[in-house]
């Protein structure tokens, strides 16, 4: 009973409605601009919209066209590669750094902010920095040649088969510090008495981490997965700044696909269909997670 229930006052009926009136504009905005718009876009995906929204019903035609497009499959395949590497590397790196940083490190106050600052940057800035640093003409390869390592070659960003991995590099750089912070918070929440008990049982540090602490990080892994998966599906700016989706379509993702079909290729129906599929992907990650979070939260 956390509520300060509204008391009916003969004097002032409005006072009782006031809280709901205050909430109403925000709620209305969310209903219209989020849920209403989702319905609208969902509807457009069943129409013959081209350059402008149009309301001629075409059923599932856009979806069948979409799934027949190699370009879309390319975007999905890239998302698969990018998403899984991004999630795995960020989690492993984040957990590793958090464990190292949790060893009573003197310089923690200096190191932690260094690992985390990329999260404050725009993906456009990150993309710009890595774009030129990975550019064979002036970046890393060029530098190595200058240093005398003539045979050094690193041309992934220009290579159709490897460009998607440069997106992974830049994205991991940006997000892994944040995952580290999540794990560090989790590690700090581990009851030290459990560790002491394990030490008395004669467990080595490696065993303590492998058998006790890391399994206790399960909820953090889950949160990290949800956050990273949802960032991966939304990823747009980084690709635009880093590779522009190229070379060719080598780094197209669903987000860049949606944008180009909707706004530059005048196939709004197909764009809307791809956006709807992106929403479904994110919802299938977020909704079960929030559902379990909210229901356990209510129990406690």
């Amino acid at each position: 009973m956390a509520q300060a229930a509204t008391a009916p006052s003969a004097r002032n009926y409005l006072q009782e409605l006031l809280p709901r009136l205050v909430l109403a504009p925000s709620f209305a905005a969310v209903l219209i601009f989020v849920y209403g718009f989702i319905l609208f876009t969902g509807y457009l995906s069943f129409t013959d919209s081209k350059m402008l929204p149009s309301f001629g019903w075409v059923g599932l035609e856009n979806y069948s066209k979409l799934w027949a497009l190699p370009h879309w499959w390319r975007a999905l395949g890239n998302l698969g590669i990018f998403g899984s590497l991004y999630i795995i590397i960020c989690s492993v790196l984040g957990l590793g750094l958090a464990i190292l940083l949790d060893q009573k490190i003197r310089a923690e106050g200096v190191l932690r902010p260094i690992y985390l600052y990329p999260m404050a940057l725009s993906f456009i800035v990150t993309g710009t920095a890595w774009k030129w640093f990975l550019d064979p003409g002036i970046g890393l390869e060029h530098t190595m040649h200058q240093w005398g390592w003539e045979s050094f070659s690193f041309t992934w960003i220009k290579d159709r088969n490897f460009a998607i991995y440069t997106v992974v590099i830049a994205a991991v750089w940006q997000s892994s510090g944040f995952v580290m912070a999540m794990f560090l918070a989790g590690l700090r929440g581990v009851d030290n008495e459990i560790i002491k008990a394990a030490q008395m049982d004669g467990a080595s540090n490696l065993t303590i981490y492998r058998r006790i602490i890391i399994p206790m990080m399960r909820p953090v892994f889950l949160s990290a997965f949800v956050v990273l998966a949802h960032l991966a599906i939304k990823a747009y700016d980084l690709v635009v700044a880093l590779t522009g989706g190229g070379p060719g379509q080598a780094t197209e993702l669903p987000a860049t696909f949606m944008y180009s079909y909707t706004f530059t290729r005048n196939s709004m129906g197909i764009g809307a269909a791809s956006a709807t599929i992106m929403l479904i992907m994110i919802a299938s990650v977020i909704v079960p997670y929030l559902y379990s979070e909210l229901s356990t939260g209510r129990k406690s």
Binding site: T6, A7, P8, S9
Partner: peptide
Amino acid sequence: GLETITAGEIHINGRKVNDLHP
């Protein structure tokens, strides 16, 4: 008066306070 009542009456000093603000 921090919570409403479903039925009944509350009187303070002869005055019915059911619907009064706290």
